[in-house]
Design a protein around this nucleic acid. Structure first.
Lengths: 339, 339
DNA sequence: CTGAAAGCGCTTACAG
DNA sequence: CTGAAAGCGCTTACAG
C-alpha cells in the first residue's frame, strides 16, 4: 500500500519500493538506472511507486558498490574572488547538466590545505577534480589522485603534469597584448603593478609585457615593477608609491582589474586622473569595469569559458582516463577610456 | 610489509591497514575515529601504518553504515553573484574548520531546479543544508528534507517555516536607513530603483524606505519606483529613464550596489554627476564601492557574517535537531561621497 | 584492550 | 524479462 508523503514518514529505500511495486530489488535498480530489458508495464509501475514514495536513491550505497560517483570536485584559491566565482558558476552549471553535483573547497593558496582538501575529496568519492593549483604545486601534489584513480584537470594555473589536462589562458599573450596597446598609444615609460612575486601567472604576464616592449626597444626596469597581493588596497598603495618614486612613468599595466581599481584610487588621492594623467590597463575584464570612471581598458580573460571547458575536459577524462587536452584561451583586448 | 606510495599502487582500504598493522578491522576503525580504549602502542602502530599506506577512509561506506556524513550543502541563486560568492566563501571556511566539505548548487532562482537540487543533495547524503530560497518557496518546498531528517537553515531570504533556523539581515531596516540618510541630507524627492518585483527582500527594502519617509511626511510615489533585474545594465537604463520621466527627483535608493553602479553609468551618459547632480545610495557595500567615482554611500549588509552564522546554526541543528534560531543582522550605513 | 560478525542500501554477475 | 545472492568498505553492538 502506498502512503502519501508525510513529514513524519521515514525515507523509503529501494526495498520499500520493491515491496510496494511487487517486484525484486534487482528490477527496481534496473528500472531506475535505465538498464536491462524491462517490460513497459513493470517499468511504469516501478517508476510510479518510486515517485509516490518520494524515493531518493542513496548515492553513498551506489558509489560504494559500483565505484561510480556523481560528484565533481573544484579546488580553488578562494571562491569569493570574482574570477573564481564566475568560473565556479559555469563549471557547476556544466556539471549539473550532466547530472553531477559540485563540491567546492578553498585552499587559500596554501599547499598543505590543498593536499588536505584533495584527500577529503577523494574520501568523499569525487569522480574527478578540477583544480586551480596553489602556488608551489608540482606533479607530486596530485599523486594521491593518481593512486586513487581520480582524474583531474588543472585550470588557470599551469603545472607541468603529464597526467592531467589543462584549461587556462595564455598569460604571456595577455601581458604582451596590454604592453603592445600602451606602446601603440605612444607610451614609453610603462610600469607593472600587483600580483604576488611567486605567482606564475604574474611572472608570465610580466614576461609577456617585457617581451613586447623589448621588441620595440623599450625597457621595463625592475624599479617600475611592484609585486604584492592582488588587492585593491595594494593597488592603491603601490600606485601612490610609484608616482612618488617614478614620476616620469606615463602608463601602468595592472596584474588584474582589482589592482587597477586600486590604482585609480591611488591616483585620485594624488589628485591625478586615470586615463588623462596616467594610462591604466587592467587584466581580467570584470563586468563592472565598464562603469568605472574612466571605463577601464583591460585584457579580457574568460573565467566562465574556463569553467565550462574544464568541466568538459574532466567529464571526458572520467569517460576515458587516457584523454588529455591543453586549452589556452586567447585573451582579448578591450579598449575603453583609461588608456 | 609496507610499501612506499607509488603511482601504480591501488588505494588501501581499512582491511589492508589492519593486515599491515597486524590488528583487526575494528581496532583500525576505532583508532582512526578516536573511539574506544586502545593501547598507546597499538594506536601509534595503526596510525603509522595508515599514514605509510596513504590510507584515505571511504566516506561513502562510513556514511552508509553510520548514517553520519561530513557533507554540508549550500543552495543559492547564483554563486557568481558577489554577495553569494562571499557568503559561500565564509560558509565553506566555517564548515571546513569543523571537518565538513561543502557541496554547492545554483538554482537560478527557479523553484523546480531548487527541488531537484535538494533531492540530489539528499541523495548524496548531506548532513544538512543552507538554502537561500528561490522566489516562491514556502514550507512545502523543503518537505523532502524533513522526511529525510536533513536539518536545514534558511539564509538571506526569509520563508515562513517553523522547522528551520533563519540567518539574514533586516531588509526593512536597510531601506529605512537609506531613506533616513537621504532625508536627513535634505532630499524630499527620492526614487527607488531596481530589483525584481516579486523579490521579498526588495519589497521589504522598499517598504522600509517608504515607512521612514512617511514619518517625515514625504511621499514615494509608484511613478518613482522602477523594478527590474538587479543588474548594472538595468540600473543604467532605469536611471536614464527616470531622469527623463521625473527630472525633479534629487536622490535615488538603489536595490543594491550593482544597480547603483548602473545608475552612475546612466547619469554619466546624461552628462550628470552622481553625488553632485543627483544623490545615489546603494545597499550591500561591495568592497569596490569605496573606489568608485564618487565613492558610494551604501547600507552595509554582511554576506560573510551570514555565511559563518548560517554554517554555525546548521552545525548546531545537526547536533541537536530541535535547535532553532533567527538571526537578523543589523545593516550599517556607510556614508561616502555619492549622497 | 581487542576481535568476529552483522548490516547499512545499493549494483551486478549469474541463473532461469 | 525477472529474481536470489554476493559484496562494496566501513561502523558498531556484543563478547571476551
Amino acid at each position: 500500500m502506498i502512503h502519501s508523503v508525510k513529514d513524519t514518514q521515514k525515507p523509503a529505500s529501494i526495498k520499500e519500493v520493491a515491496e510496494a511495486a511487487g517486484v525484486s530489488l534487482t528490477t527496481v535498480s534496473l528500472v531506475l538506472n535505465g538498464k536491462g530489458r524491462i517490460s513497459t508495464d513493470t517499468r511504469h509501475r516501478v517508476q510510479e511507486t518510486a515517485q509516490a514514495l518520494g524515493f531518493i536513491p542513496n548515492k553513498s550505497a551506489a558509489r560504494l558498490r559500483s565505484g561510480r560517483s556523481l560528484l565533481l570536485g573544484l579546488v580553488v584559491n578562494d571562491i569569493s574572488n570574482p574570477f573564481f566565482a564566475e568560473l565556479s558558476s559555469d563549471l557547476e552549471a556544466e556539471a549539473a547538466s550532466s547530472g553531477y553535483l559540485s563540491v567546492i573547497a578553498n585552499t587559500g593558496d596554501d599547499l598543505d590545505r590543498q593536499s588536505r582538501v584533495i584527500d577529503t575529496m577523494i574520501g568523499q568519492g569525487v569522480a574527478g577534480l578540477v583544480v586551480s593549483a596553489a602556488s608551489g604545486s608540482d606533479v607530486s601534489s596530485f599523486a594521491r589522485l593518481r593512486v586513487h584513480n581520480v582524474p583531474y584537470v588543472l585550470a588557470v594555473r599551469e603545472v607541468s603534469d603529464p597526467y592531467a589536462s589543462f584549461v587556462g589562458f595564455d598569460n604571456v599573450l595577455a601581458g604582451r597584448t596590454a604592453a603592445d596597446h600602451l606602446a601603440a598609444r605612444g607610451h614609453r615609460r610603462i610600469a607593472f603593478v600587483g600580483g604576488p612575486a611567486r605567482n606564475q601567472n604574474r611572472a608570465e604576464r610580466l614576461a609577456g609585457a617585457r617581451d613586447a616592449l623589448r621588441r620595440r626597444c623599450i625597457d621595463l626596469p625592475d624599479a617600475w615593477v611592484r609585486d604584492g597581493p592582488a588587492t585593491r588596497t595594494f593597488g592603491a598603495a603601490a600606485m601612490a608609491d610609484l608616482i612618488r618614486a617614478a614620476p616620469d612613468v606615463t602608463a601602468v599595466i595592472c596584474f588584474n582589474d582589482t589592482v587597477a581599481l586600486g590604482a585609480y584610487e591611488g591616483l585620485h588621492r594624488a589628485a591625478l586622473t586615470p586615463g588623462a594623467d596616467l594610462a591604466v590597463c587592467g587584466i581580467d575584464n570584470v563586468p563592472e569595469g565598464a562603469s568605472w570612471r574612466p571605463p577601464l581598458t583591460t585584457v579580457e580573460l574568460h573565467p566562465r569559458a574556463i569553467g565550462r571547458r574544464a568541466a568538459r575536459a574532466l567529464l571526458a577524462a572520467i569517460d576515458d582516463p587516457a584523454t588529455r587536452e591543453r586549452v589556452h584561451l586567447t585573451p582579448r583586448l578591450v579598449v575603453r577610456d583609461s588608456t
